[in-house]
């Protein structure tokens, strides 16, 4: 099979990761931040899967599945926090949630 080489996949993965990072750093809405985080995780997953194919080792796919599980767990907790914040009538703005300042 002579499809695109692994480099292409890795390029897409890197781009996804960078985009997600950009989103985390630049957006102020908590939900959008969480979504950008998901993008980053997916970028990493893609790289893992690609390498798994490249070196003929299943560990990459296992790792990707674990990442998915952890992402799910993290989203669960993160959304729980969002709900709690919303219940207490707080503004869902990362710049406003700065009580832990020194």
């Amino acid at each position: 099979m002579t499809g695109p080489g692994i480099v292409w996949y890795l390029g897409v993965a890197a781009f996804l990761f960078g985009t997600g990072a950009l989103g985390v750093l630049l957006r102020r809405n908590v939900l959008i931040v969480l979504l950008s985080l998901e993008i980053m995780l997916n970028g990493a997953n893609l790289a893992l899967i690609a390498f798994s194919r490249h070196v003929h080792n299943g560990a990459g796919q296992i790792f990707a599945l674990s990442v998915m599980a952890v992402a799910a767990a993290e989203v669960c907790v993160g959304l729980g926090l969002v709900v709690a914040l919303h219940r207490r009538r707080l503004d869902l703005d990362v710049d406003a949630l700065s009580e832990l300042r020194g």
């Binding site: 985390v24 750093l25 630049l26 102020r28 931040v33 990362v94 710049d95 949630l97 700065s98 009580e99 832990l100 300042r101 020194g102």
Partner: peptide, 13 residues
């Protein structure tokens, strides 16, 4: 202390 802005974005940065 000024590093501790309390802003999530700073920390992530």
């Amino acid at each position: 202390r000024r590093l501790q802005t309390g802003l999530l974005r700073t920390y992530v940065f």
